[in-house]
Design a protein around this nucleic acid. Structure first.
Length: 277
DNA sequence: AAAACGGGGAT
DNA sequence: ATCCCAGTTTT
């Protein structure tokens, strides 16, 4: 979390959860998570099934798996402490450039730019006069420019990064920017240019009918079966994975994929499915 | 460079 | 009923 009194590990957990999920949905899960598993060693020692159930529907259950792997990696470090350096952070499972920079800055007040999609959009609009950042991930140019804007003091950097992230999330909205409420309106190149629309709109992912939806249905059944203390038969798993009007091969692909990803385990004899121990 | 990977909320 | 959102890993 980006607040006082939160441990570096708590910050890391919060930022991992926030990777694809809005803060309001993350907050209650994070509170309970940190109560149950305050430190990396606690999470590393927990049954993976409990971790996946606590993760609930935050999205992409493989991220919960990696977070537990990350906990083990951190617990194995000297003092069991979260590293402060970008390179050491990025070497941890599930930690990429975004989370590494967020932890480095928010937990350790390192002078690092935190470039999430909201910040990239704010900079693209105010400085480049473009509606969106170039669609790919931030490159050298973007990062060095963002760094050149940072305050000198590390603590001020944390405030700066949080401010830009919030501005992008709440005011400089992707679809409906509230320029009338924007503190940067008078200096914004995009607003000055009349808010020109980008040639290519970023295309969202399809959801209905995808393998991801089928996998999500199976995960929901696995969680329910686990809390009821029963296994899930393969037939029931396939049934859960069968979407209306879908390719018949999709269900088995979804179930087998979950097993391959370590999100489900299959009994070698009965083929019953369960969450990993 | 591109695809795979959930699930909810706004419109 | 549609559209939209995000960072990490794998291919």
């Amino acid at each position: 979390m980006r607040a006082e009194g939160v441990s570096p590990w708590g910050t890391l957990v919060f930022e991992v959860m926030s990777q694809q999920t809005p803060i309001p949905r993350v907050q209650p899960i994070w509170e309970r998570w940190m109560r149950d598993w305050p430190g990396p060693a606690d999470l590393a020692a927990a049954p993976t099934a409990d971790v996946l159930i606590a993760w609930d529907r935050l999205g992409y259950p493989s991220r919960a798996l990696r977070l537990q792997q990350c906990a083990a990696a951190v617990a194995a470090r000297p003092g069991g402490r979260v590293p402060a350096d970008m390179d050491e952070l990025m070497a941890l499972p599930g930690i990429g450039p975004y989370t590494a920079s967020a932890v480095s800055c928010f937990a350790y007040h390192r002078r690092v730019a935190v470039l999430d999609t909201n910040v990239r959009r704010v900079l693209a609009r105010t400085l480049d006069g473009r509606e969106f950042a170039p669609s790919s991930s931030p490159g050298r140019r973007e990062r060095s420019r963002a760094e050149s804007l940072l305050p000198d003091d590390g603590e001020a950097c944390a405030d700066w990064n949080v401010a830009l992230m919030e501005l992008g999330a709440l005011v400089c909205d992707q679809r409906a920017p509230r320029c009338e409420a924007c503190p940067l309106a008078s200096e914004c190149a995009w607003l000055a240019a009349g808010r020109p629309a980008a040639e290519v709109r970023p295309r969202g992912q399809a959801w209905a009918g995808t393998d991801r939806q089928a996998r999500g249905r199976v995960m929901a059944s696995l969680r329910a079966a686990h809390v009821e203390g029963r296994p899930l038969t393969r037939a029931d798993a396939l049934s859960a994975a069968t979407l209306p009007g879908a390719d018949p091969a999709q269900a088995s692909r979804a179930v087998d994929g979950l097993v391959a990803d370590g999100l489900a385990v299959a009994d070698p004899v009965t083929r019953d499915l369960g969450l990993p121990g």
